[in-house]
Simulated assay, not measured.
Amino acid sequence: MTDCTPLLDAVDRIADRFRSLPQSRLLAAADGGGASRAALGLELARALAASAQREEFPGAEPRRIPDLGVFAIGDQIAVAGHDLAAALAAGGGREGASQGEASREDVLEEALRAVAETARRCGL
């Protein structure tokens, strides 16, 4: 069974940080320019949700999380991250990767990297 505690901790931490940011910081450009913190947070939520959907419904096209505004991003990250953790924990007995498919551990590591990278880019 895949231990998803590190993912849950990381997702809860970054979601709480997004929830506490004022609108001005959410809309400000992150990492010295480019995309806003809100855009990067939404991108993270979408990536986590897509990974969860690929785990739960292999072969189906993942649906995209809608943009519900800057104040919903923390919640979207939390929900998508918890969905991914639940999908990885359930796993359906899949231990390794089949041809062209990432293992649960690889998916978990990629999700942790994405959370850490978003936190770094957003200065959180």
Rank of each mutant, 00 (worst) to 15 (best):
V70I: 15
A80M: 11
P66L: 02
E55N: 05
D106P: 02
F71T: 15
G33M: 08
A78T: 11
A114R: 04
H82Y: 00
Q76V: 08
V107A: 05
E110S: 15
T118M: 10
D67W: 00
A87T: 05
G92D: 04
A86G: 09
L88C: 05
A35I: 05
L124W: 08
R54A: 06
A47H: 07
R19K: 13
F18P: 08
L88R: 03
A78F: 14
H82W: 10
R13L: 13
G81W: 03
S20G: 13
F57P: 12
R94Y: 11
I65A: 10
Q53K: 06
L42E: 00
M1R: 12
V79Q: 10
L21A: 05
A85I: 01
A39M: 09
R25L: 04
A90P: 03
P66V: 11
L84P: 03
S36C: 07
L40V: 09
A30R: 11
G123Q: 00
A111P: 09
T118P: 01
D9W: 13
E117A: 14
T5H: 12
G91K: 05
P58S: 07
P58R: 02
G32A: 02
V107D: 07
P6H: 10
R17C: 08
S24A: 15
A28G: 02
D67G: 01
R25I: 02
D31I: 02
L8C: 13
L84C: 06
G93A: 02
A114D: 13
P62T: 07
A35P: 04
L8W: 06
M1D: 12
C4F: 01
R17Q: 15
A52K: 01
E43N: 15
E109T: 14
G96A: 15
F71Y: 14
S20R: 14
T2E: 12
V115Y: 08
A87K: 06
R13Y: 07
R121F: 05
A50L: 04
V11K: 10
M1E: 03
A87R: 09
G100V: 10
A52H: 00
P62S: 00
D75T: 14
A60D: 08
E95L: 13
G69F: 12
S20W: 09
V107H: 05
P22V: 08
L42Y: 03
P22F: 04
R113F: 13
P58V: 01
T2W: 07
G34N: 01
V11F: 05
A111G: 03
D106N: 14
A10M: 04
R63L: 13
L21G: 05
Q99V: 15
S20Y: 09
A15C: 05
R19W: 08
L40E: 04
R46V: 10
A28P: 00
G92Y: 10
R25Y: 09
R19H: 11
A119R: 15
E105M: 13
A114L: 12
I65T: 14
G41K: 01
S51P: 03
R46C: 02
S98R: 14
A39F: 09
A86C: 03
S51Y: 00
A85N: 00
L44R: 01
E55Q: 13
E43W: 10
V115G: 06
